[in-house]
Design a protein around this nucleic acid. Structure first.
Lengths: 341, 341
DNA sequence: CTCCGTAACAAAATCGGTTTAGTAAACGAC
DNA sequence: GTCGTTTACTAAACCGATTTTGTTACGGAG
């Protein structure tokens, strides 16, 4: 099967290739009658533009890039990525723009991927995830003038437009909620403190506790692994000043924490309240169900895609936009502190 | 910042553009000395081939396509896709080949995507998931001569190479295992029976039960949703001839089923054994932990990528290959039937 | 009737590579 | 010394679209 080209259409319609191009792209220079004839022939042949040829001349690759910096083992567990992708797609398909995916090992490899994409004209722009403190990716993208939208911020994104999840506000809501339930000793199982959103949440936690006159909260670190988050919870629960509520940075981490707490014979929520950033189906599968901070992740993906298109179309200074705020969904894992003895 | 082209290299090295092309592609026609000089200049300028220009002449798009037919709501929950992608990527990056992702609504849209990718030269080949009975995608891909590898089969893939998970063998293992524990009344919560692997499993279940002299097993259908799988389990447990073991087509479905069983006051595994196709972290997060059939999904992705490259390189009749067989991982959710009263 | 503007199209250049055809010099064989 | 062959390179065609530049023919103004 041979793909039809513009020359084939030109032959059939008895006009020149340029006339065909004008007709197909709604440019002036052809009569209405000829235009209709050309469109008819094109439809009949099932013609579609050769993306490479168009990209070569016009400069647009017709695709955006998403580099995922995740070890293979963990990629599956996190619903976040897939939800984001499905959100991106909803906007991309409307502009018949492709999505280029690349899984990378680390930041260095991610930067190399951006350089390669840029040099090879493979993408018109990229979506950047998990903003870090002093993120080297920002400078590289600015340097390349590769349009980009950062999910994370708002600080530290340089001139790149960004969507920032209101992490400080979310954490504030959580603390207010727990304080209203009577909790005073709070703990926080956080992710990598090089991540911007983790820093923001931690700062907000301490700030609100100070304002409310609560004791200094404890923050411990745990990565995404089972062992690590279990260990973090065990340490917290074994401490002399055991917290009455723990805030987890991830639904996965929180579920693991819940298992640990139940294993240790604590009753949830009477003796310990648990709350998770990032809601997912997982939170509803466990018993008791986990109170969580929910996010419209597909919505954020769509928003990011729209902003990226604006940047690609050359709009200067799209600036930062806040994402929809977190919604606190109280479920069975939180309640007033009511020790049995 | 301007991307360097072959002409820039030619100028600097004082040779023609064709000489540069020969040097860069290890073609004969240039002296070793010139080749080294050209390579040096290219490295110095940081030259990378313009993917569109190369694709236009050479025909290769330098990317493969993956169309995901999943409603947005469920994409996140399933670890399968992401694990597969990370497996694909491990092979793709070695050949510096891109991955084009597209989320589609239904089979019709998926076929339209294949046609578009083909017509626009966007991908060199595709990976097809979730083979169905009498799958219309197979004929379209064969018709387009678009290289493809089907994950699923081995029957019904036409001339397309495929990787088939040994579903019948997996189900046989499960039944043997349950029979050895003394179970006789088995039930099966299955997915859409239009899916090939669901049909294969169901057939194997009935076949093995017949051979072993077990009563006819019950198969009920449930999609991926919470409600549906909960409902399926409830129906099974409420039936007069209540099964003593249930086999679920998905880890998610099984976890939901476990919650329902516990809610209904059944003790697991004494009064009911549960077992899940597709292992994931989820299976280890619940209590009791779920016995599951595990798969090396990233490995299968890598295998699929290798087969697809072979097909793209024009190897005829790569044929079907079995994937690594399922591994049965016994955990706390299965045991001998020991009713308390 | 001539001149100018414009509509409607064709011809050709262009993007950045790859590939074929062509060419000059060097070399070896007889 | 001549002929054929190889080596090392250049020139030019080509891929399929877009875009600029030319070229007619026609219509209206003067």
């Amino acid at each position: 099967m041979k793909r039809p080209t513009i020359a084939d259409i030109a032959d059939r319609a008895g006009v020149s290739r340029s006339a065909v191009s004008f007709a197909l792209n709604d440019q002036p220079g052809v009569s209405e009658e000829t235009r209709q004839r050309v469109l008819g022939v094109a439809a009949e042949l099932g013609w579609r533009p050769h993306s490479a040829a168009r990209a070569l001349r016009g400069g647009r690759a017709g695709a955006i890039g998403l580099a995922l910096q995740r070890p293979a083992r963990l990629l599956g567990a996190e619903p976040f990525t897939m939800e984001l992708i499905s959100g991106l797609e909803s906007e991309l398909s409307a502009r018949s723009c492709g999505l280029n995916l690349q899984v990378v090992e680390d930041t260095e490899a991610e930067i190399a991927t951006y350089r390669r994409w840029w040099a090879e004209h493979r993408v018109d722009g990229v979506i950047v995830l998990n903003l870090r403190d002093d993120d080297p990716r920002v400078a590289v993208l600015e340097d390349l003038h590769l349009p980009a939208v950062v999910i994370g911020g708002p600080a530290g994104t340089g001139a790149l437009p960004s969507i920032w999840s209101q992490d400080a506000a979310g954490m504030t809501d959580v603390v207010e909620y727990l304080a209203a339930l009577g909790h005073r000793r709070l703990a926080h199982v956080a992710g990598d403190p090089v991540m911007r959103h983790i820093v923001d949440r931690t700062a907000a936690l301490h700030e609100v506790c100070r304002l409310r006159g609560l004791p200094e909260p404890v923050t411990v670190r745990a990565d995404y692994s089972d062992e690590d988050s279990a260990q973090a919870t065990r340490r917290l629960l074994a401490s002399p000043e055991r917290p009455t509520a723990i805030i987890y940075h991830t639904d996965l981490t929180a579920v693991t924490g819940l298992e640990v707490a139940l294993e240790m014979g604590l009753s949830v929520p009477d003796e310990l309240s648990l709350i998770a950033f990032n809601d997912s189906r997982l939170c509803r599968l466990v018993n008791p169900k986990l109170t969580a901070l929910a996010h419209d992740i597909p919505g954020r993906g769509a928003q990011a895609a729209r902003m990226l298109f604006a940047a690609i179309d050359g709009e200067r200074d799209a600036g930062s936009q806040p994402a929809e705020p977190y919604r606190l969904l109280p479920r069975g894992s939180t309640g007033p502190y009511r020790p049995s003895r």
